[in-house]
Amino acid sequence: MKKILNIVVLLILKFLSLFIRKENIVIIGTYSRYRYGGNTKYLYEYLSMNTDLQVYWLTESMEIIDYLESKGLKYLTNKKLFKKLIVTLKCKVIIDSGTGYYNPFNYFSSNPNILKISTMHGSGPKLTVERKENIEETLNLIKKINTFNCVSFCTEYSRVTIGINQLLLSRDKTRLFGLPKHDLLHDHEYINLTYKKRKWVKAITNEKNNINKSKVIYYTPTYRTTYKTLPIRSLPGFSVEEFDAFLEKEDIYFIYSFHSMNSSIEQFENTKRIKFVSDAEYPLFDNFELMIESDMMIGDYSTLATDFSLMSKPQLFIMPDYKEVYESKGFAEDLKPMLPGEEITPFNDLKEAIIKYIMNQPLFLDKFKNNIDLLQSKYADIKKYDSREMFKNYILTKLK
């Protein structure tokens, strides 16, 4: 019954579209209608300010709506459903950051005249597809991403290794446009000002005065199906109380978030020095901005490791399930030969590594520069790209 209803609604939408003239409208979103961040955010703002295109952000968050209205930016919401319907029927370009996109009743996927673009979330060896289990889910993912006309990669190596070999994209669908968020790293004035202001650090820690004298660690465990708790808890000897005392002694704040699909994972209780940040509490939160504000990142096999390596700041890695993931789902290739930081196993090593590197960036770079260079050469050569400008030119050319 539901399938029949969807077909009926799709036919109605297609009929209505015959009487509505298409315009140079771009609709942009990300994985959640309650988040404003990531690659599509930066592309959305750039296109809004640097073209005559009508660019809309998809959202259902009142906080995001208020923010966009204060900036004079366009948006679509179910709260104004008729407007959303009309703009949808007039739209020529759909952009998202993942393997899917805004596609009411398959209206856009069934229309070959609509330009569909994926910026991708990130770039790194983690980007692979399940080959041993959940094969049907994998095939659906591959089928879905192949409905895009354009999927962006950062290097020729990642284009072939991930785009062609993993996602089975044809070469004409893969483009070397890089990631829009990486453009910010070319603006050194912006980087310095963001670090100095520490907008997100101040909001999350609720510290306004002496926070600029403190060091900040950002912990970013990625999505995993095998753990129901934070991987840091698996370190032998780990204790929240002892870690909090250590952080206070060293004047360090430890801010952590986790992948949106890990919503059921067990969290720490917030302490004086350990703080959790989520999209639900902060819809405008942007983890890339928090990375810029931080002095060190602790992660795993997430693509955020590639992003943070571009900032040349210390990283540590906690990956108790690396072998298990490598042998089951696998990676595009083994990350360990290019790990841009030290892998940690016992808790005491974590404390020692934090003290060793967080105050000594040159020491960190001296030890891990070769790994960082190798990772970036394969997955994020930002020296070659002005990502947002390349996306802009591509869209304008296609709309001629």
Results as ranks from 00 to 15, higher is better:
V8C: 12
R33Y: 13
N113Y: 07
E23C: 07
K369S: 12
Y282L: 13
I12R: 01
S17L: 03
M1A: 09
F243A: 00
T222L: 05
L304S: 08
T303W: 02
Q376R: 15
K173D: 02
L176W: 10
S97C: 09
N50I: 07
F238K: 07
G122W: 00
D251R: 15
L115S: 00
T226I: 15
N50T: 07
N113T: 09
T225H: 09
D381H: 12
K213T: 14
S118G: 03
V240P: 06
M297K: 06
C150K: 11
D286C: 00
K196W: 12
R35I: 01
A380N: 11
Y253H: 06
Y218K: 08
N192W: 09
Y101N: 00
Y301N: 03
A380K: 00
Y256E: 10
L284E: 01
K378N: 14
S158Q: 04
L184C: 11
T225E: 14
Q376T: 12
Y357T: 13
S61G: 13
T306V: 11
R224T: 13
Y102E: 08
N146F: 01
M296A: 07
L53G: 02
Y56F: 14
Q315S: 08
T161A: 13
L76E: 03
L18R: 14
H259R: 05
I395V: 07
S97P: 05
L304D: 02
E327Q: 10
S377E: 10
N24C: 12
K392N: 01
M62W: 11
Y101F: 10
L363H: 10
K173R: 15
I95G: 01
I211K: 05
K249Q: 15
L47Y: 12
Y394C: 10
K197R: 08
N39Q: 06
M359N: 15
V240K: 09
S377C: 12
L290H: 00
I7G: 06
P236G: 02
D187I: 01
I344Q: 06
C91E: 02
I95F: 08
I117V: 09
D295A: 02
W57M: 06
L304I: 11
K197Q: 10
L179T: 03
S377M: 13
K116L: 00
E289D: 09
D251F: 03
K80N: 12
P125V: 04
I27N: 04
I145L: 09
E343H: 02
E343C: 02
F288S: 01
K144S: 09
P125C: 04
L339A: 04
E69Q: 15
E130A: 08
Q361D: 11
G124T: 05
D96R: 11
A245M: 13
S263I: 14
E324D: 11
M319V: 01
G163Y: 03
L396E: 07
I117S: 02
S387R: 00
L168P: 09
I27V: 08
L18Y: 13
T88G: 15
L290R: 02
Y67K: 10
V87C: 06
E281R: 15
G299H: 04
F153C: 02
I95A: 02
P320A: 01
D321H: 00
T59H: 06
